[in-house]
Design a protein around this nucleic acid. Structure first.
Lengths: 224, 224
DNA sequence: GGCGTTAACTTAACGTTGATAAGTTATCTC
DNA sequence: GAGATAACTTATCAACGTTAAGTTAACGCC
């Protein structure tokens, strides 16, 4: 019919996948989507743009994801996975419960500031659909393969750490869940502010992070 | 003055406005938009739905607002004006500097939870075009009538309060700006979390707000 | 009372968006 | 070879924000 020269627009040399290798395309889509989401935001990163960058037609994305939201969810899990890895490393190497929590906060804040775009994508959420916004917390944790459960996993680690702290004999001003929520909210407030308003003349970053950490940990520890 | 005032709130939706009274329609649009934004969220509240509720065609909205965003911004200023009012009332009725700050935090948190959409747009959101994005902080405050300046005004009040607290002889652990940032970040963390993850089984709201307030204020006050 | 101006609208349409239906092509197994 | 079917495309949908261009009605003025 036609010359088989694939002289299309900006289409890369990606050819049709062989039979058993569709998952490869799935990963390509995720990579392209991640880049575009971070570059332009959720709304501006249209499925057509994503498909274009992959070098494939737009409906092809629906072979691998139920809808645009599902792409977002998959990316969320990817990001959460990296954080959870770091936290696991802390749990393995640090035994003192209080020290663990400090290290958790440190790792959490550092992770956020080192990957501001991903943090924004996952933890802050913006104009994104309802289902995606719930990613962080609402879902049941019993099935870790379920999309969008990573946030809950991260948070539950903090709760566990605080329970262990209490079990070790340290008196807390609130129940462990409440303490965890307050700790997370404080650190998240710092990270979110620094990420979302990078041009504001904030005080020194380390001062703010360390300051909030001190404030929050002092605040939940019952004063003897 | 006015012969008939029949169109105050339950307006005859389909009637064309008389010559000098276009601003009346503007207010109707704002009211309808506010209701719809709160009922269904920003995205789901389409221009056509808003126009429908007003009883007017969709393009008619563009006679009064540059675009959909401008409607939201107008609503933001409207509601932030109320927060600033509350803060002003606190400043007038409460003389003790520390008490002022507590009341500020209380009013701020309550306001955020009462107006989650406006709060999200101004203090959290970022997916919105550049002009709206800076709304929170970086904006010049010299023109208070400028759309979207409410956030910066609110924050500057807190800085002032903390400077006054220090001037009153109370020793702080950090400079007033840093203290203001930490206070704001803590409370913002609570409000943002409650707004963005409304379905998570958080601890009692009042406990969290009051708890963060205690934590943060204790944290910035130099321990004697 | 008629006329011109113009504020206050309407209808029609544009370009995109996310998503679906239905058809096509290439690779596998037999 | 002949099916079967994974991988993909083209054509199309309804809904979105927004614009262009035309219409209606209220006023001042002669």
């Amino acid at each position: 019919m036609e010359p088989e020269l694939a002289a299309s627009s900006t289409a890369p040399a990606t050819s049709r996948k062989k039979r058993g290798e569709g998952y490869t395309r799935r990963d390509e889509i995720l990579l392209a989507a991640k880049t575009l989401f971070l570059e332009e935001g959720y709304d501006a990163a249209t499925i057509r743009k994503i498909a274009d960058r992959v070098g494939v037609s737009a409906p092809a994305l629906y072979l691998y994801f139920q809808d645009k939201e599902a792409i977002m969810l998959a990316l969320c899990d990817q990001t959460f996975g990296r954080l959870i890895e770091r936290i696991s490393r802390i749990e393995k190497t640090v035994s003192d419960p209080l020290e663990r929590i400090c290290r958790f906060g440190d790792a959490y804040a550092r992770f956020g500031l080192e990957h501001p775009d991903e943090y924004r994508l996952v933890f802050i959420g913006h104009n994104i659909p309802e289902a995606v916004r719930k990613v962080g917390h609402r879902m049941p944790i019993d099935d870790p393969t379920r999309p969008g459960v990573g946030g809950a996993l991260v948070f539950s680690r903090l709760v566990t750490m605080l329970s262990q702290l209490e079990a070790s004999g340290v008196k807390l001003n609130y129940p462990p869940d409440t303490c965890a929520e307050l700790c997370w909210m404080g650190i998240h407030g710092v990270v979110a502010a620094l990420i979302m308003k990078p041009d504001f003349p904030w005080s020194n970053r380390e001062t703010l992070i360390q300051g909030m950490q001190d404030i929050v940990i002092n605040g939940i520890l019952s004063r003897a």
